[in-house]
């Protein structure tokens, strides 16, 4: 359980540190989060076989969304301890600095 939380935190930090990520998503029908005693990491779901990261991309994205998602996936996969890594682009948010 602690390992899952640690992994979720690491994945969250890795995803948020990627340029083009506005925030982590919360899921649509069910909350996308990893739960631990007294704590939860929203936006990352850690299963025994998979680490799934939900992101909200910044608009305009610095690169095409598939490339951005792939970059996040690679970064998170380095911390995923061999589990399959999935990235879900949940939304696109206009950046406040974007002059649109």
């Amino acid at each position: 359980m602690d390992d899952d939380l640690r992994l979720a935190r690491a994945a969250s930090e890795a995803a948020l540190a990627t340029e083009g990520v506005h925030a982590l998503g919360t899921g649509r029908y069910a909350e996308a989060a990893t739960y631990g005693p007294g704590e939860k990491v929203v936006g990352v779901v850690v299963n025994p076989n998979e680490v799934r990261v939900h992101i909200i991309a910044r608009y305009p994205p610095p690169e095409p969304l598939p490339a951005l998602a792939e970059r996040i996936r690679e970064r998170v996969a380095q911390r995923a301890q061999g589990r399959a890594t999935t990235v879900v682009v949940e939304d696109v948010e206009v950046s406040p600095v974007a002059n649109l």
């Binding site: 649509r28 969304l65 598939p66 998602a69 792939e70 996936r73 399959a84 890594t85 999935t86 990235v87 879900v88 682009v89 949940e90 939304d91 696109v92």
Partner: peptide
């Protein structure tokens, strides 16, 4: 599905 392991929601 975008690529292997990367997805985008239908709403986006």
């Amino acid at each position: 599905r975008m690529q292997r392991g990367t997805y985008i929601t239908r709403s986006v």
